[in-house]
């Protein structure tokens, strides 16, 4: 038996994100075959594992925190991952959801956001005129928070989404235990 090193473990999650960063990770195409030689996925939407099965080497977090559940998941990721990476602009600075934090002429942006979405919006059909408040829904936060405002983040991969090349280069470097070194021409914030 050849002594192959144990496989690295990767966990991923999407918090207040659109899954675009996960899609971009899948855009590494056939390089995923190289990836599974050196690593395997733990908790991730890719394999639908909802809980951590072991401690992970790298955790990739997409999206910021807009509700209570996002905060819990992010804290679990911090506890269970050696290196925690904020992937994409939403995880880094809140991204599009953060637009609800500062609304012009509004003293209560969260309420105004909900009113527009569920009651007063021109294309809204909501006969009960109620904002959804089922106890099963995660409690919404007062504002949207970037991941680094909630837990310690070790690395960031900017982009909306980061390109597959960027994700591949960073992920392989981190799995090899090297510091992330983003080539300048791959750095994009859009």
């Amino acid at each position: 038996m050849t002594d192959t090193p144990p496989k690295k473990r990767i966990a991923t999650t999407s918090l207040a994100g659109c899954f675009g960063c996960h899609m971009s990770l899948l855009d590494i195409d056939e390089r995923i075959l190289e990836l599974v030689k050196i690593a395997e996925f733990d908790r991730s939407p890719f394999n639908d594992l909802k809980k951590f099965t072991a401690r992970c080497d790298v955790g990739l977090v997409e999206g910021g925190c807009c509700n209570e559940e996002n905060v819990h998941v992010l804290q679990e990721f911090r506890q269970n991952c050696d290196v925690l990476v904020a992937v994409g602009q939403c995880a880094i600075m809140g991204g599009l959801p953060v637009m609800r934090n500062a609304i012009m002429h509004s003293d209560d942006p969260l309420k105004d956001c909900f009113d527009e979405a569920y009651i007063s919006g021109p294309y809204t059909q909501n006969l009960k005129h109620q904002i959804p408040n089922d106890p099963a829904l995660p409690l919404i936060l007062d504002s949207v928070y970037a991941c680094s405002e909630v837990v310690k983040i070790d690395y960031q991969i900017p982009g909306c989404p980061p390109s597959a090349d960027m994700l591949w280069q960073t992920l392989t470097a981190l799995l090899a235990g090297e510091p992330e070194n983003l080539p300048r021409e791959l750095i994009k914030y859009d």
Partner: peptide, 24 residues
């Protein structure tokens, strides 16, 4: 944005996001 690319700004910072309410 281009200046941030040139200066290789990618990593977490010590500064808080101010998120001011400004006019359009």
């Amino acid at each position: 944005q281009a200046m941030a690319y040139r200066l290789n700004i990618t990593q977490p910072t010590k500064f808080p996001y101010q998120q001011p309410v400004r006019s359009l």
